[in-house]
Amino acid sequence: MSTVTPFETAGTLVVRLKPNEDLVTGVEAACREAGVARALVRSGVGSLVDAALSYGEGKRVDVTGPGIEILTLIGEIRDGEAHLTGTIADQEANIFGGRFVPDANPICITLELVLEVVA
């Protein structure tokens, strides 16, 4: 089965999350505050105190910071829920990838985020 949904743009959101905000629930809250239920991540640059990424069947990797770099951020906000995947680098420049676990990815210095809002 496949589902194809054409979409129209309804503008953009620029978001800054400040320290100790959670990446996932913070993005959800930012969208809620802007009255946005659907959006696409167009770019995200920032850092995390610690990171937790899920992969496989219920597996999860926890990476200890601080100063973990968010290298790439991909995903969308669907029905108000943020589905975010990406890659990170730890202090030793080890790279990890996966899905960002809600309430487990506190922002270290900042998150700079550009979203395209879906009508």
């Binding site: 978001v15 800054r16 100790n20 946005v36």
Partner: peptide, 14 residues
């Protein structure tokens, strides 16, 4: 600690 914790600005798609 500065407020708000989330700064959200809505614009058009240019």
């Amino acid at each position: 600690v500065s407020q708000p914790r989330r700064v959200v600005r809505k614009g058009a798609l240019g």
